[in-house]
C-alpha cells in the first residue's frame, strides 16, 4: 500500500520532537479529521529555518508526510519554505494512495501556522501568508487535485 520511502519515513521519522524556546509554533488539524500536526521552528537572524521539529497524530502517511516535509524545510529561508506545496511533499515521497492525498496537505498548513506565529511575534510580514487562516488548517484548501 505504501512505497519504501513512505514506510522509511513512517518507521524512522526525521526531526520528531520539540524545540525549547522556538521562534514559532503551529498546529493544524483536529481529532475528528484523524490527524494533527504541530511544527516548531527555530529561525535565525537571516530568516533561515535552522531547526525544525514536529509531532503528528495520524496515520502512516500523515507521519511520513510530516517527516519528509521537515527535511525539505530545514535550511531554507522562511520565504523559500513557504513555497512548499502538498504536491512537493507527495513528489518527494514518491506518491501516496489516492485516499491518503489529503494527509500531505498537513505539513504545508502546519508550516504556515508556525510562520504566522513567528510573524505575529516579530512583526514581520510574509505576503505568502496573506489570506491564510490557521483554523482552516485541514480544509484541504490549495490541495493539489490529482487524477487517478
Amino acid at each position: 500500500m505504501y512505497n519504501d520511502k513512505v514506510m522509511d519515513h513512517f518507521m524512522n521519522p526525521r526531526n520528531v520532537g520539540v524545540i525549547e524556546n522556538p521562534s514559532g509554533v503551529g498546529e493544524v488539524g483536529n481529532v475528528s479529521c484523524g490527524d494533527i500536526m504541530k511544527i516548531y521552528l527555530l529561525i535565525d537572524d537571516n530568516d533561515v529555518i535552522v531547526d525544525i521539529k514536529f509531532k503528528t497524530f495520524g496515520c502512516g502517511s500523515a507521519i511520513a508526510s510530516s517527516s519528509i516535509a521537515t527535511v525539505m524545510i530545514k535550511g531554507k529561508t522562511v520565504s523559500e519554505a513557504l513555497k512548499l506545496t502538498n504536491k512537493d511533499v507527495l513528489d518527494e515521497l514518491g506518491g501516496l494512495p489516492a485516499v491518503k492525498i489529503h494527509c500531505s496537505v498537513l505539513a504545508e498548513q502546519a508550516l504556515k501556522a508556525a510562520v504566522l506565529d513567528y510573524a505575529n511575534k516579530t512583526g514581520k510580514h510574509y505576503p505568502e501568508l496573506d489570506g491564510f487562516e490557521p483554523d482552516d488548517g485541514h480544509d484541504d484548501h490549495g490541495l493539489v487535485q490529482i487524477e487517478f
Binding site: V16, V18, I36, K55, T56, F57
Partner: peptide
C-alpha cells in the same frame, strides 16, 4: 505516542 502532539 512520543510522536503525538495530543500525548504531549
Amino acid at each position: 505516542r512520543q510522536m503525538s502532539p495530543l500525548y504531549e
